[in-house]
Design a protein around this nucleic acid. Structure first.
Lengths: 203, 203, 203, 203
DNA sequence: AATGAATGAGTCTTCATTCAT
DNA sequence: GATGAATGAAGACTCATTCAT
C-alpha cells in the first residue's frame, strides 16, 4: 500500500528507501509494487497526489463564522489545521516534500496547493477581515499568516525528525504550545498598545 | 572540500548525492575524497562537526546589554542568529540535519548543541529576565523562545527547499518578515493589555 | 554454482578471483551471485562447509577388517583416502584451506575436522592396534599416521599447484608412488629387523 | 626491505597484501617501494630470485661422506635440509610458491631449481648409491627421495599455515617427528626383511 | 494478480601506481 | 632518495526493474 511507502519515505528519504523494504512492510513481494506502479518515482507521485486530493476539501472547508470575533475564528482555523497535520499523514508529507523538493521540483506544486494556497485563502482572509474591521491593527496579512503558521509546520517537521529520535525538546509536540504561540501573536496584533517602545519605532 | 559536499548534501540529500559529483565540483578525482575521509558517512560527520565548532562561539556570544530594554536585546540576539543562519552555511546544515536525522540519529547531538542549547541559554535567559523584571507578562520562557525562533528555522529551511525552486512565497526570505514576526510576539508579551478578549479568557 | 567458485579459488586464490569471473564461468550475471550469497567471503565459507559435510561420512567410514592384517587394512584405508583426495573436489579444498587459513582463521576448524580428526581416528586407530598386537614395533601412532598421510596431502597440493603448471615432477600424480611410500613406511615398522644399524641406535 | 614483503606475502598471499602494508612495516612511505621496484610483481620476483640464489649454494653443498653408511649420510643431508627450511626464510618461500604458481607460472622455475633439482641431485644421488651398494634393496630413487622429503615440505607449509593459527597438531613442528619418519622409511628400505607379508607381495 | 529469479546500470570503495617537490 | 598528494582502473556490492511462470 501507499501507506507503507509513505512512512518509509518520510523516515529515510526517497533515495535511501529500498523498494524491497516497502514491499516487506506490506508483506508482499518486491515485484508486486511494479504491478501497481511503473516505478519508484511514480509511487512517490501517486503518494503525494493522493494526499493532495485529501487535503483539498479539508483546506477549502474554511470555517464560517458563528458570531465570534476574527481572533477566535483564527484560533479555530489554526486548531483545525494543526489537528490535520498532527493526526493524519499530512504531517509526514510535509517533511517528505521539504526533503525532496530540490530533487523533484514537481513537488513544489503540492506545497503551493496544499500549504500556501489554503493558508493564504482561508487564514489570510480572516486576517484581512480583522485588519479591515479594526480588530487588528494594520499589518501585512501574509506576514501574519506566516507568523501564525510557520511554528506549526516546524512542529510537524519536528514530530517526524528530532521528536522521533529523542525525548529532548518534547515541547513542540504539546498542543498547548501552539495555543500559547497563537495568543502571543494575536495579542501583538491588538490595536491600541503603546507598549514595547522600541519595537513600535521599528514597526 | 567540505563545502562542495555540504551544498550537494543540502541540495539532494545524503543518499542521493554521489561521491563522484562532490569530487567533480571541486575538480578532483573521486578517489581523492577517500584520501581525506574514510567514507561518505565520515564526510558527512566531518561536515557537521566542522560547522558545529564554528557555531559554538557565535552562539555563546550572548549580547551583553547596553542600557537597552530586554525586548531590544532580544531583537538584537535574534537578528544575530538570523544573519548566522542566512549568511553562513549553517542554514544548510539545519536542513541537512532535519533531513537526515532519522537515518543518522547521531545528528541529534548536533541539533541539541547547536540549536536547542544556545536558544535556551542565550535567548531563554533574556526572556526570563524580562518576565522577572515585569517587562513581559508571565509566560513560559521555553514557549516564548520557540515562538520567536521557529519561524526563523523555517525561514532557513525555506531558503534551501521551496525558495530554491520557485519564486512563489518569497516572503520568507525577506528580512522584514522576521522583524515583523518578532514585533508581533514581543507586543503580545507586553504586560498591560486588555485586548483580544477571548484570548485572555483562554490564556 | 559453488563448483565454479571452488575451481577458481583453488586456481588463483580467494583474493585474486573476481566475482565476475565466477559468474561468467557459470554463465550468469555478477549480481546473481549476490542473490545466493551475501558476500564473496560467504561464498567461500559455503563452499568449504558443503565440502566438509561431504567428507564427514566418507571419513568416518573406517574400514572394518575382513580377516586381514593391520598393514593391509591401513593400505585400504589410505587408498580410500587418496581416491577421495584425487577424485573429488576435496583435494582442491585442501589447497584452498592451506592457502587461505592465515587470512581466514575460521578455516582452521575445517582442517581439524576434515583432516586431523579422521586421520587420528580411523588411521591412528588401526596403527595403534597394530602396535598393540605386535604387528608393528613400538612407535608413536601420531607420528606414523603423519608419516603415511603427509605425502598424500602433498600429492594433492602438487596436483593443484606444480602439477597443474608443468609436466616436470609428474611422479607425485601416479598412484604407484603412494603405494610404494606406504610400503616403505610399513616395512620400516616391521618388528624384528636388525638392519640399518645406525638408525636403530638413534631410534 | 624484501623481508617485510616476504613475510606479508607468505602470510596473506600476494594479491591480498597491500603495498602500503609492506611499506608501513619497514617504516617508509608507500611510494618508496616504487623507488626500488618498478611494480609489486617485480618485488615478488626479486624476492624469489634473492632466495633462489641463497639456496643454490646450500643445496649444492652435498655432504661428502666421512666413513659413514649411506643411511647416515642421508640423515645428515635431510637434517641440513630441514634446518634450511625451518630456520631460514626458505620455508616461507615454499608456501608462497605453492600458493602463487598458478597465478605466476614463472615461479615453477624456482621450484624446479630450488626443490626438485637439489633433491634429485644430492639426496637422490646418495639413495642411488645405497641401492647400488646393496645397502638398500632395489627401489626407484625418485620415489624414495619423495617419501623422505615430502613430509618435510608439508612440515614447513604447516609452520606457515595451520601451525601459525592454532596450537592443535603441533607435532609437525617438532624435530623428532622428522627423524622418526626418516627412520621408518630407511628401515623399510633395509634389504633382507621377510616381514609384513602382504606388503612384500605387492612390492 | 503475484512472485522468484535474474540482471544492467550504477555506486562506493580500494589500491597499485605516478609525480611534483 | 624519499614522500605526500592524487588518481585511473578496477572490484565488491546494491538495487530498481524485468519477466517467465
Amino acid at each position: 500500500l501507499l501507506d507503507a511507502a509513505l512512512s518509509l519515505f518520510v523516515e529515510k528519504g526517497f533515495a535511501a528507501t529500498r523498494a524491497e523494504e516497502i514491499a516487506a512492510r506490506v508483506g508482499v513481494s518486491k515485484a508486486t509494487i511494479y504491478v501497481y506502479f511503473p516505478s519508484k518515482q511514480d509511487l512517490l507521485k501517486a503518494l503525494i497526489a493522493r494526499e493532495l486530493s485529501a487535503v483539498a476539501p479539508s483546506g477549502a472547508r474554511l470555517q464560517a463564522v458563528g458570531g465570534e470575533c476574527c481572533a477566535d475564528l483564527l484560533r479555530r482555523q489554526l486548531a483545525t489545521w494543526w489537528s490535520l497535520l498532527a493526526d493524519t499523514a499530512l504531517g509526514g508529507i510535509f517533511k517528505l516534500v521539504i526533503t525532496e523538493v530540490r530533487v523533484f521540483p514537481e513537488l513544489m506544486d503540492f506545497w503551493l496547493r496544499a500549504v500556501v494556497e489554503p493558508c493564504q485563502k482561508s487564514i489570510g482572509k480572516t486576517v484581512r477581515e480583522a485588519v479591515e474591521s479594526g480588530e487588528f491593527r494594520p499589518a501585512d496579512p501574509d506576514v501574519v499568516v506566516r507568523s501564525l503558521v510557520l511554528p506549526m509546520i516546524m512542529g510537524c517537521l519536528h514530530r517526524h525528525t528530532i521528536g522521533a529520535c529523542s525525548a529532548a525538546d518534547r515541547l513542540l509536540g504539546e498542543p498547548d504550545f501552539f495555543s500559547s504561540h497563537v495568543d502571543f501573536v494575536l495579542q501583538g496584533l491588538a490595536p491600541c498598545t503603546g507598549a514595547s517602545a522600541s519595537s513600535s519605532a521599528r514597526a
